[in-house]
Design a binder for these strands. Structure first.
Length: 379
RNA sequence: CUUGCGGUGGUGCAGUGGCAGCAUCUCAGACUGUGGAUCUGAGGAUGAGAGUUCAAUUCUCUCCCGCAGGC
């Protein structure tokens, strides 16, 4: 049985419904995974991920291999029996390689060999190479590993973008070879996804998509987007790459995102997403509802004794009122952040569920337009 | 009744004879392969009255209010 099966293609758009087979079960696509960078969400636990609402749980999450290798260290996670049992999560786990951190000031410099980091916890010097990151990801026991990529920042020159892309390509073919050996040696079922780079230069995106797609990855990710560029730039970059990525492979846009962006990308044929956007917004008091964003820290909610969203089945809406959440934001921010994160994640999960139904009924376009109309309606 | 100290945005505090600052707060936004009380804008005050002075939030006087002590 193939790793990825497309169950249904929407008649009006490129949206599709499918299933991805992994070592920890088969997951329906499209799906959204919240971040569990350090083998946990921020202010939120595996238990919460498993019980966002009565019938809603997180099916997949993404951890950061590089960060976990620094703390607690792969020996701990190996001894725990892998990252799943370490955090007691039964769903699908992706591991990110750490390439993204490079653009986030944690790194010293990069060379064609790899990325030169300092361990953020003890300041020890580390060189992250494709070899090393493949070993780490396999040791963690994730279901899907991401190759080591070189991501250039928003606004860099074409020359710089090309260097990063070329590094990515070299590391990609190396990662794949190493991973295949390791997979065989360890009898592992771990999948490996490649990553397309090329910054916001459409011709580089096209070149990168062709190259990465020519390698035998289990899925193809588009990286290096949602890093501060305007939305249209992101769509431009994705659109430049997509025609060269085989439709029969799962496609993953890394780091996205907002509800509207995810809908747009699903319509273009993207299957996987991950982002801190819903939880980061939640921690900062921006709540997602079908009728738009809501700033729960506003005084207007001090006397509002109704749930965040009428009819929402999430743990937070079933248990607490807006007034109480507003109060928590002032006196107990940690509890507040947990509860708001639960709501926003549940919102995302339900949105994706509705999307899947819409695709099944060939009504994705109508669904998207209707959602957009409601969500963007200005009060 | 009396003595001393004090009254500055909603709150808590600076400061100055010449554009009144800070923190918090409120309002409007932002956040995208997790920098965990975040970031960007905006709003809002010299207790009342008189005097000295070119100019008073600042110096003087009266009143009002608060705090501490004395009778």
């Amino acid at each position: 049985m193939p790793v990825f099966t497309i169950l249904h293609r929407d008649k009006q758009t490129n949206a599709r419904r499918g299933k991805l087979k992994t070592a920890h079960g088969t997951i329906e696509t499209p799906f959204f995974m919240p971040a569990a960078t350090k083998a946990t969400g921020k202010f939120i636990t595996t238990d919460d991920y498993n019980n966002l609402g009565k019938n809603t749980k997180v099916q997949a999450m993404i951890c950061n291999a590089f960060i976990l290798s620094c703390k607690p260290g792969i020996d701990v996670i190996k001894a725990a029996g892998g990252v799943h049992s370490f955090m007691n999560f039964k769903g699908v786990v992706f591991t990110d390689c750490g390439g993204f951190q490079m653009s986030r000031s944690m790194y010293e410099h990069k060379s064609d060999k790899g990325i030169h980091f300092r361990n953020p916890f003890n300041n020890q010097k580390i060189i992250l190479t494709p070899q090393k990151i493949m070993e780490i990801e396999l040791a963690l026991g994730s279901d899907v590993a991401m190759m080591l990529d070189d991501m250039s920042g928003y606004g860099v020159s074409k020359e710089e973008a090309r260097i990063a892309m070329n590094n990515t390509h070299a590391w990609g073919s190396l990662s794949l070879r190493i991973h295949q050996e390791l997979r065989k040696k360890n009898k592992s079922k771990q999948l490996l996804f490649g990553i397309v780079q090329g910054n916001f230069y459409p011709d580089l995106r096209q070149e990168s998509a062709k190259y990465i797609s020519s390698l035998d990855f289990d899925g193809i990710a588009i990286g290096g987007v949602a890093i501060g560029e305007p939305m249209e730039k992101m769509y431009e970059a994705v659109d430049a790459a997509l025609p060269y990525i085989p439709t029969e492979k799962p496609r993953y846009v890394m780091g996205v995102g907002s509800p509207l962006e995810i809908l747009e990308l699903i319509g273009r044929g993207i299957d996987c997403f991950d982002s801190v956007f819903p939880t980061q917004n939640a921690r900062h008091g921006t709540m997602f509802t079908r009728t738009g964003k809501m700033y729960i820290m506003q005084t207007a909610y001090a006397f509002d004794f109704t749930p965040l969203e009428a009819g929402c089945e999430c743990h937070t809406c079933q248990t607490y009122t807006k007034a109480y959440l507003h109060h928590l934001s002032k006196v107990e921010p940690g509890c507040f952040k947990r509860l708001t994160s639960i709501h926003n994640l549940c919102f995302m999960m339900n949105l994706i569920e509705d999307v899947k139904k819409a695709i099944k009924n060939d009504a994705f376009l109508e669904f998207k337009e209707e959602f957009k109309k409601e969500f963007c309606r200005k009060k």
